[in-house]
Each structure stands twice: as structure tokens, then as C-alpha cells.
Design a protein around this nucleic acid. Structure first.
Lengths: 209, 209
DNA sequence: CGGCATCTTAACTCCGCGGTCAACAATAAC
DNA sequence: GTTATTGTTGACCGCGGAGTTAAGATGCCG
């Protein structure tokens, strides 16, 4: 893989992720992507054979941050710690990968017609693990008797909303872009809401001991 | 407006809202809408002059339930009552108007390019009213010092997710469609989460007295 | 330099979909 | 009945965007 190839593929994927996020798959024109990348249209076809292929490359290029966010569930067993870290990680994804988040959201809203099955499975696997862990906390009396699935749905929705519905959020807050402080506030308030709302025993002792 | 006209317009709008929700604006073909409505394509153009016009009609046909959901904020002043009723109403919209919800979500995700400004303003107005009310509860010590905007974002996201991301929810829960019971559980758990999580004084006394 | 691979570009094809039209059928008005 | 209005239909047009091609430019080895 030559330097030029690598470089141009990156340019194109970056441009594509922005435009796919902005307009959705069907409304996106290859020439727009080419223009944003500063390249002629046939180059896009030279490096990626088709629009669909490019789209899949975009999705694949951004899976990692999305999957990484679930790490806290594998690294600890204290509900307060895990849930807090998970929420922070999720909001960070929305903040740092807004395009990726939107492409994914749009994809899932329309029934995930392009999502490779192995990726869908990986995410499903993570979900099962996370649910089981939450259930175990419930069983051990470390938090209220919540339904793990509904809890996850709420966390996903509340964290992703900062990327997916940024237009709405801009309008309501009156800011074109949220500041670091805004994201911190969001994460902190949501953490508080979830922990307190689920009656999580915030036992730092459990971690220290 | 003749009977036939009224009837066919309804058929088309119903079909259109399903397909727009399913595929998004750009990916939707008029002939698909016509087929689902059981009419030839030119009829769609006879009753609605253009695709864009039809799309706007779809949006307008479903504004009411969306706006109605905010009623609880105007009918009461007890935080526990209002928030509970609001969450129930919002989830009911997701349950009863899944297509409408999706069309709106998709529209907003892409920067609301087709949303009539007067509708956007109405929603903005509601948001301001709701925020102010929440702020007044905070000021009166009826709940924790939460940021009203972030609280609303969370409620919106968590309630809409049951319509917008139904594919994901189906996969995780293993059910093609959620039952009435599932929606009730979701509403009840989310209410509990929000009320407890925001330290809302659940004073039925305030209402009775 | 020469010779090979990689990259770039303008000009092109193809086709699907938004939108139209003109003739026809059905209904309503009298 | 006659006429006017409304509704239906198949065949059509034009555009714009996905994808192609073939020639030329550029880099990359000796």
C-alpha cells in the first residue's frame, strides 16, 4: 500500500463520514465527497469500488471507538464505578466522533441494512455481557431491581443524543457547539441521575477494599 | 373537498409516513408509496404536487400528537406528577406513532432541512416553558439542582428511543414487537429513574392540599 | 535515462426516479 | 338525458447521479 494510496483513502473516508453523517446514505452524492476531499470523482471509485463499499469502509473505520466505550464493564465490578465510567466514555464518543455516531444512528434507525453481521454480533455480545453484569448487581442487592435492558436503552439514548440530535441541542442551548464544560456537565448530571435513580450503593470502600 | 379526495389523501399519507420512516426521505421512491397505498403513481402527484410537498404533509399530519405530549407541563405544577405524566405521554407517542417519531427524528438528525419554521418555533416555545417550570421547581427546592436542558434531553432521548431505534430494541429483547406490558415497564422504570434521580419530592400532599 | 506501476482526469454511458401529459372513466349537477 | 368537474391511467420526458473508460501524468525502480 503506497503512501499516496493510504493518504487519499484517509482523506476520502474522512470526507465521506462527514457527509454521510450529515445527509444520510441515499442523499449523499459521491461528487460531494470528492469535492470535500479535494479530489476528482473517479478517484473515489479508484480507491473504493462503489458507494456501498465506501460506506461500509466508513462504518468499519469507526467501529473501534464505539466498541471501546464498553470497556468499563470488563474492567471493574463496582456498579458506581462502571456506570460512571461507561457514561463518561459514551459521551466522549459523542463528542469526539460525532460523525461516526450519526452514521451509526441513522443506520440503525433504518434497520441496519448495511451493517455487517459480524459487527452486529459483536455489539450484541457486549450487550449481553453488560446486561448480565447489571443483573448480577441487582441480584447482589447493590442497586434497585431495574430491568438491565431498559437501563441500557436509557444510557445509550441519553449519551448518543448529544451527537445524533446536535441540531436540536444547538437550538435549545443557543450555542453552535457545546463546550468541554457542557459535555462535562452532561456526563456528570447523567451519572448522578442514573446512580441515584437506580439506588446504586456508591461504595468506594468496595473498590478500595 | 370530495370524499374520494379526502380518503385517498389519507391512504397516501399513511403509506408515505411508513415508508419515509423506514427508509428516509431521499431513499423513498414515490412509486413505493403508491404501491403501498394501492394507487397508481400519478395519483400521488395528483393529490400532492411533489415529493417534498407530500413529505411536508406527512410531517404536518403528525405534529399534533408530538406537541400534545407536553400538555402535562401546562396542567399541573407538581414535579412528580408532571414528569411522570410527561414521560408516560412521550412513551405513548413512541408506541402509537412510531412512524411519525422516526420521520421527525430523521429530520432533526439531518438538521431539519424540511421542517417548517413555525413548527420549529412552536416546539422551541414549549421547550422554554418546560425548562422554566423545571427551573422554578429547582429554585423552590422541590428537586435537585439539575440543569433543565440536560434533563429534557435525557427524557426526550430515552422516550423516543423506543420508536427510533426499534430495530436495536428488537434485537436486544428478542421480540419483534414490544408488548403493552413492555411499554408500561419502560415508562414506569424511566419515571422512577428520573424522579428518584432528581430527588423529586413526591409529595402527593402538595396536590391534595 | 528507460520501463513499469500507480495515480489522475475529462468525457462518456446508463438507468432509475421525479415529474408530466393527454386521453379516458366516473361522478355530480342540472 | 347533457354537461362540467373530478378522478384515473399508461405512456412518456429529462435530469442527475452511479459507475466506466481510455488516455495521459506522475511517481518509483534500475
Amino acid at each position: 500500500m503506497s503512501r499516496i494510496r493510504e493518504h487519499n483513502r484517509e482523506l476520502i473516508i474522512q470526507a465521506a463520514s462527514e457527509i454521510f453523517a450529515d445527509q444520510g446514505y441515499a442523499a449523499t452524492k459521491i461528487i460531494e465527497i470528492a469535492n470535500r476531499a479535494g479530489l476528482p470523482k473517479p478517484n473515489v471509485y479508484y480507491y473504493f469500488k462503489s458507494k456501498e463499499n465506501l460506506y461500509r469502509s466508513v462504518i468499519e473505520s469507526v467501529i473501534d471507538p464505539l466498541l471501546q466505550a464498553a470497556q468499563p464493564f470488563y474492567e471493574d465490578d463496582d456498579p458506581a464505578t462502571v456506570l460512571e465510567q461507561y457514561i463518561i466514555a459514551k459521551i466522549k464518543v459523542s463528542q469526539q466522533h460525532p460523525h461516526a455516531s450519526k452514521v451509526f444512528a441513522s443506520e440503525i434507525m433504518h434497520g441496519a441494512p448495511h451493517l455487517p453481521e459480524d459487527i452486529a454480533e459483536k455489539m450484541m455480545e457486549q450487550t449481553i455481557q453488560s446486561s448480565n453484569k447489571i443483573q448480577s448487581w441487582v441480584d447482589r442487592g447493590l442497586m434497585d431491581r431495574v430491568d438491565p435492558h431498559h437501563l441500557l436503552f436509557t444510557i445509550w439514548a441519553a449519551t448518543q443524543t448529544y451527537a445524533d440530535f446536535d441540531w436540536q441541542i444547538s437550538r435549545v442551548t443557543g450555542k453552535d457547539n457545546l463546550s468541554q464544560q457542557d459535555y462535562d456537565t452532561a456526563a456528570q448530571q447523567l451519572t448522578q441521575l442514573i446512580l441515584k435513580g437506580c439506588g446504586v450503593q456508591t461504595s468506594k470502600a468496595a473498590k478500595a477494599g
